[in-house]
């Protein structure tokens, strides 16, 4: 069996996997990082979105062996030193989640959006979320939360200048 090693949430991890093991299976089953969810089998729902080398990807559509040597961040690694990421905080503040199942993928996707586009319009947020399905919120408060996080983060960025 191939062995893989990668950095997950800042920690060096490794293990033996089958070639066919998906990144999401490695994260959930071998590392116990169950915050990354599986909501479909056709790479559309986005419940499994994580960051690999800084960009959002669907962990159900990447083999664990493909991610060897990469830097992986999951929802569990987003908060730093007990401090929520502004996107996480905004989701709570603006009720951007209900059942919570799509939420980790939604947040990881949103964080990537704001890396690309610090001040997206509502339409840009909605388009970006094409790969993230939510059945509870009607997206209204997710969009609101992401817009608020963008404002918050750019405010901080300005303050730091």
């Amino acid at each position: 069996m191939p062995s893989v090693s990668m950095t997950v949430n800042g920690k060096q991890v490794g293990g033996e996997v089958e070639s066919r093991t998906l990144l999401v299976e490695f994260l959930r089953n071998q590392l116990g990082l169950t915050g990354t969810h599986v909501g479909c089998d056709t790479s559309q729902c986005g419940c499994c979105v994580v960051h690999v080398d800084g960009r959002s990807v669907k962990a159900c559509t990447m083999l664990a062996v493909q991610a060897a040597g990469s830097q992986v961040t999951t929802i569990e690694g987003l908060a730093r030193n007990g401090q929520l990421h502004p996107v996480q905080a905004a989701f709570r503040e603006h009720h951007g989640l209900q059942c919570g199942f799509c939420t980790p993928g939604m947040i990881m996707s949103a964080v990537d959006l704001l890396q690309h586009n610090a001040n997206p319009t509502e339409a840009e947020v909605r388009e970006w979320l094409e790969g993230n399905l939510c059945r509870c919120t009607g997206y209204h408060n997710i969009v609101k939360a992401i817009m608020a996080a963008a404002a918050d983060m750019s405010g901080h960025a300005k303050a730091a200048e």
Partner: peptide
């Protein structure tokens, strides 16, 4: 093409 995550890979 696809969605942002698909476009990233």
């Amino acid at each position: 093409i696809g969605d942002p995550q698909v476009r990233n890979l």
